[in-house]
Design a protein around this nucleic acid. Structure first.
Length: 469
RNA sequence: GGUGGGGUGGCAGAGCGGCUAUGCGCCCGCCUGCAGAGCGGGUAUACAGGGGUUCGAAUCCCCUCCCCACCUCCA
């Protein structure tokens, strides 16, 4: 049973499926007005790993992640670029998929967009008006937090102190400074007709509308970056629970920020590393290992040396995978020694898998889970170095290793059959040159392949190749 | 000011009362045609500071000092 910290209760709690084995998850996605950066990547990768882990454990996970495609920032950016807001949003949604497919993040079951759920939002607003939780001013429709007696329960805020903070905008018409907009009256584009007048939705209403539409009034997990706890998630709870009188999300999961030199990575601070640029520099596996190298609730520093560390870890894993793949071609070793190697490796991998799962169960302890995976990896590399791997060891080890790699979302580069044939031809030619001690020519082939990202590794009687990723 | 989370070896990061975490980096040696991987050894006494509790504390209690996030749009 997986245990995760629940922001709502402040405790680590078991994630329980609803009916049978179904777990419904909603993740607050991105506002599409610019490129996604490493901070977004961290949150989305963490949710991807939670999802993969639950899938591995046999749950049926229904996963929804939204796009905020109507918002002041989008409108502003579109105006500056001289394009329509919805076109700008569409462009960055396309970019989003390029980035996150590139990061090997599994596609969600639904990617609802705010602009396609205006009617659903109207229904919620209407319901809240009818139940007396919302009221109208000349500027829009507002949610009245005073009507919601447990307002603040997620962020543990004292309402009085929030008011004292005086950071909220002054609006004489609002009954309470903390009341937030459900619908804002505007005439310019983009805007939609509503029962109360033409306008745009407030920020929080979309997530209530879309999560409940696709997952039901109550679902298992909701989350996002920890900067969304207040006001966004607090307000989502207020709206949703006031409307349905039911519990909204049972479990709230929040991911820590990525910092640059101690400060949060944010577009406004101009210290972002866009995903597309990080991907071309480091590759998906390295970025994923980096994002998972810290516990998800702690801040993660964005720093070259950390990426380098993650890359070194990935190189070890990659090496082991290629050694095992090539070992599939090596006939089973006969006798006692061959069996002993299989037994020992099996013991190490089974134990490391057990520890891996145990660490993952405990509030997604990925740093330790990865450390445990590396125990297996190191053992494989050790045997590979001693030329002790064969088809039996490979077959014994691969399933458990693949399970762990699936959960973390790590995978080797793909190699087409043409590419494979060409590489193997080159390797063959080089081996002949080496046999004739024509090392200079042999090294030239190795260098040439290396320039293409193919690395050769010589064993006693054979050479294996790796396509680095 | 409020709320939440932290301060561990050159760096990153576990540890939740007693047993070398781990990874990376660096140095020496072995192996290799050279690489890569691997192996052996090393990298001064690691735990913010000060008091306690305990046979025993990085781990529990008290005090002090720093750091981060949120309280405004934000993953």
């Amino acid at each position: 049973m997986m245990r995760l910290y629940n922001t709502l209760t402040g405790r680590v709690e078991e994630v329980k499926p609803s009916n049978g084995m179904v777990i419904r998850m909603y993740l607050c996605g991105v506002t599409v007005y610019d490129y996604s950066h490493i901070g977004h990547a961290r949150t989305i990768i963490v949710f991807d790993v939670i999802r993969r882990y639950l899938i591995h454990k046999g749950y049926k996970v229904k996963f929804v992640q939204n796009f905020t495609d109507v918002d002041d920032k989008i409108i502003k950016a579109a105006r500056e670029k001289g394009v329509k807001p919805l076109e700008l949003a569409e462009h960055f949604i396309e970019q989003y998929f390029k980035d996150f497919d590139g990061l090997n993040v599994l596609r969600a079951d639904h990617y609802p967009r705010a602009t396609e759920h205006i009617e659903d939002m109207h229904r919620i607003i209407k319901g809240l008006m009818e139940k007396g939780y919302a009221y109208r001013t000349s500027k829009g429709i507002y949610f009245h937090i005073a009507k919601d007696e447990d307002y603040g329960k997620l962020s543990k805020k004292q309402i009085d102190e929030l008011k004292a903070g005086a950071r909220v905008e002054v609006d004489e018409e609002k009954l309470d400074p903390l009341d937030f907009a459900l619908w804002k009256f505007v005439d310019d584009e983009p805007s939609w007709d509503s029962p109360w007048g033409r306008g745009r939705p407030g920020w929080h209403i979309e997530c209530s509308a879309m999560s409940m539409k696709y997952l039901g009034d109550t679902f298992e997990i909701h989350g996002g970056g920890e900067d969304l706890i207040f006001p966004h998630h607090e307000n989502e709870i207020a709206q949703s629970e006031s409307l349905t009188s039911k519990e909204f999300s049972k479990h709230w999961v929040h991911v820590g920020m990525v910092n640059v030199k101690g400060e949060k990575m944010a577009k406004s601070l101009k210290n972002i590393e866009p995903i597309h640029s990080a991907l071309s520099r480091w590759g998906a596996n390295t970025i994923r290992l980096y994002c998972l190298s810290a516990h998800y609730r702690k801040p993660l520093e964005y720093d070259e040396t950390l990426l380098k560390q993650a890359l070194a870890v990935w190189r070890d894993i990659e090496n082991a995978l290629y050694e095992l793949e090539h070992a599939m071609m090596i006939p089973a070793r006969e006798g006692e020694e061959g069996r002993a190697v299989v037994e020992e490796l099996k013991g190490i991998v089974d134990e490391s898998f057990k520890v891996f799962m145990d660490r993952m169960d405990d509030d997604l302890d990925t740093p330790n889970a990865i450390a445990s995976l590396l125990t297996s990896i190191k053992a494989v590399n050790r045997y590979a170095g001693e030329d002790m791997l064969d088809v039996n060891t490979a077959k014994t080890v691969m399933p458990r290793l693949n399970d762990m790699l699936f959960i973390l979302g790590l995978k080797r580069a793909e190699v087409s059959s043409e590419e494979r044939a060409r590489i193997e031809e080159m390797v063959k030619r080089r081996s002949m040159l080496r046999a004739e001690k024509r090392y200079k020519e042999a090294d030239e082939i190795r260098e040439m392949l290396r320039a293409e990202g193919i690395e050769l590794v010589d064993h006693k009687d054979r050479t294996i190749w790796k396509k680095l990723s």
